[in-house]
């Protein structure tokens, strides 16, 4: 009598799997950005006023002036790019077009970042000495607000000092966050992007604006990184 527990086994298949990545080694790091540098300009301080005096007179003279900072510089511009799944030989497996660049982040660092996950909130103690002062344009008077920094792939980093730069002649919405690497030796100034928004320049749009320290007697070099949303 035929056994009633006869099975019909469908398949046992051998699959030779060449995995691009079964391990989650692709974690959220910003990437180096190709920079196209445009114009670099500075403003003008206010011209001197004059007052005429005559001997024996006491004159009340109220003065006001506009002085160019000698401790900060600004970056602004547009962002382009895409996301892709590719191997170490840059063969592309899948590509995505980024249609909305808002919430991209541009990072300007005065050194190389090797551990993005270790970023910490910046502070006056970690800031360059030239701005770690109580001067009018000192660090605490510039990055005077705090909130959590959160990007598409990093954070939240609690209580991160930030400031906003001007748009259209008044304080705007383009935020610059003060961060530092895990050692505290590298300062990172992170600009949160808003696609095609009003810039500080009349009639011109931008995606990002960043405020970062700079020396007045020598150039300061920043490394630029980009994180897409």
């Amino acid at each position: 009598m035929m056994k009633m527990n006869t099975k019909k086994q469908l398949i046992l298949a051998a699959v030779m799997a060449m995995a691009i990545s079964l391990a989650s080694i692709a974690y959220a790091d910003p990437t180096g950005g190709v920079v196209t540098v445009g114009a670099s300009e500075s403003g003008s301080g206010s011209a001197s006023g004059t007052v005429d005096t005559t001997g024996g007179n006491v004159t009340l003279v109220n003065v006001t002036g506009t002085q160019i900072t000698s401790n900060w510089a600004g970056f602004y511009g547009f962002i382009t790019g895409g996301l892709q799944l590719a191997d170490a030989s840059s063969n592309v497996f899948y590509q995505w077009t980024v249609s909305n660049l808002t919430n991209s982040v541009v990072y300007a660092a005065n050194g190389t970042i090797s551990n993005w996950a270790g970023l910490q909130a910046g502070s006056q103690a970690l800031a360059p000495a030239a701005v770690a002062t109580s001067n009018t344009d000192g660090y605490n008077n510039t990055f005077s607000s705090t909130k959590a920094f959160q990007s598409a792939g990093l954070g939240p980093i609690a209580s991160t000092p930030f400031t906003t730069t001007y748009q259209g002649g008044s304080s705007g919405s383009l935020e610059t966050y003060s961060l530092a690497d895990s050692t505290g030796d590298v300062n990172v100034w992170a600009g949160m992007a808003i696609q095609n928004t009003t810039s500080f320049k009349t009639g011109q749009q931008v995606d990002y604006q960043i405020l970062a320290p700079a020396a007045s007697s020598a150039t300061t070099t920043y490394n630029f990184y980009l994180e897409l949303p």
Binding site: S40, S70, N71, A73, Y76, F200, S216
Partner: peptide, 9 residues
């Protein structure tokens, strides 16, 4: 960059 300058990048 130098301080006091705004640079397009």
């Amino acid at each position: 960059i130098e301080a006091g300058n705004v640079t397009q990048a």
